[in-house]
Design a protein around this nucleic acid. Structure first.
Lengths: 224, 224
DNA sequence: TGAACCTGTTACCATCTTGTGACCCATCTG
DNA sequence: CAGATGGGTCACAAGATGGTAACAGGTTCA
């Protein structure tokens, strides 16, 4: 998750950045309105923490511009006494606001709440099956036939999910990496390692895999 | 959904009523503190929009009375400069507040957010059961099978409530925190601690839980 | 006032996860 | 044949994660 922090008060900006980083966000910062828009376009963050009082281009204009061209969730930072601007901001489509001074915890809680609301689509990743495999992405586990459930790590689970979704098809390493690691990216070595670890859990003879098949020079394929 | 609007400013009251009606609420109104309590008892609304500045019986007293006898969600309307009273109101158990002037959109959004929160952890004090567990949210206690009742703290009770309501499903830490702590927020450490304390009360072998299950990297799940 | 309790905080520890480097083998190629 | 390439296997370490415990401030209640 990537957060864009926009605040011209450097001290506060640092506090906010630190808080968000500790909560697991990648943080980008901007200190005036114009650069905020630039960073937004360049980095495509998942959420924006936006101070209203900005040099060069005020927060409300930033808010409006972003809403005109996209739907990145926005949380407004306002000082007490600024209620009018907050209302304008919310009317412009901001998702929530926090009045300074605020507790770091509140900030994180609101950010996560807004994000959860925004991506309400992939809510219930219901169990899926392919052949003998029953995968439950919510629980990170898989059951093969009538055996006991096998606990997977998150990465293993996402890898198996991608493969099972495209059962029988050959997926290139690049596309698998894209699906599993997302925008962060990863190299082939990491995928190789992950495949190895997953095989040890789901293949009865890991050195002679029958489900997670290597297509040399291309990628991998899941066979039932 | 039934909303009780309490405001002595008739013009504003009309605006609020109209907004809420348009959003699909049935609206009841009251214009002073005393009649507010009467309407509340008579109509049992799902949510209350409460102005603090009221004749006959001020908003904070109304808030307190309602909280003493029930748990209908309350959103406080306050004017600028009233922050002290807002804080008092929140301490008395109000669920959220809005500073005038506010946008209709904001009002509806907040009302729905509060209701969503209330629904996900319904404080409606009806006893509920899941498997061997009989939880009484009104009493903050739980009975497992034929054992003696176990007294819980408020937080423990709300946690168990949320989990039992979604028995068998995996809940993420963030959503649990949202349901248990509400807008105040909390971090994962606090949840971890709460889970630990609850387990010591409801699990016969707290170090090997069979009901309150950890889904590593995701959250927790209640299993019967 | 004082005791009991609730809850947030900090600390410590064990375990798990995951990225990284190393090494091996098979295959391909000049 | 020598070297390059792709892939499997293993071990290690930093960091994340979660369970446990002790403590402190605050509240409640007698």
């Amino acid at each position: 998750m990537k957060a864009l922090i926009v605040d011209d008060d450097l001290a506060l900006s640092d506090v906010v950045s630190f808080t968000m980083r500790r909560a697991g966000f990648d943080v980008i910062t901007a200190h005036d309105g114009r650069s905020a828009l630039e960073r937004w376009e360049a980095e495509d963050p998942d959420i924006i923490i936006l101070d209203l009082n900005l040099p060069k281009l005020d927060g409300l204009s930033v808010c409006k511009s972003i809403r005109d061209e996209g739907d990145t969730p926005i949380i407004i930072l306002s000082v007490r006494g600024d209620e009018e601007d907050v209302v304008k901001g919310l009317e412009l489509g901001a998702d929530d606001y926090i009045v300074k001074p605020f507790s770091p915890r509140q900030l994180v809680a609101r950010a996560e709440a807004v994000l959860r609301r925004a991506k309400s689509a992939p809510v219930t990743p219901g169990p899926m099956s392919a052949g003998d495999f029953m995968l439950d992405p919510a629980r990170n586990d898989v059951r093969i036939g009538d055996d006991d459930n096998i606990q997977l790590t998150q990465l293993e689970c996402r890898l198996l999910e991608v493969l099972m979704l495209n059962s029988g098809q050959v997926l290139t390493s690049a596309s698998i990496i894209d699906s599993v690691w997302g925008s962060e990216g990863a190299d082939r070595v990491m995928l190789k390692q992950l495949v190895y670890r997953l095989r040890r859990k789901i293949e009865s003879e890991p050195s002679e895999p029958v489900h997670l098949i290597t297509i040399s020079g291309v990628g991998y394929s899941f066979e039932v």
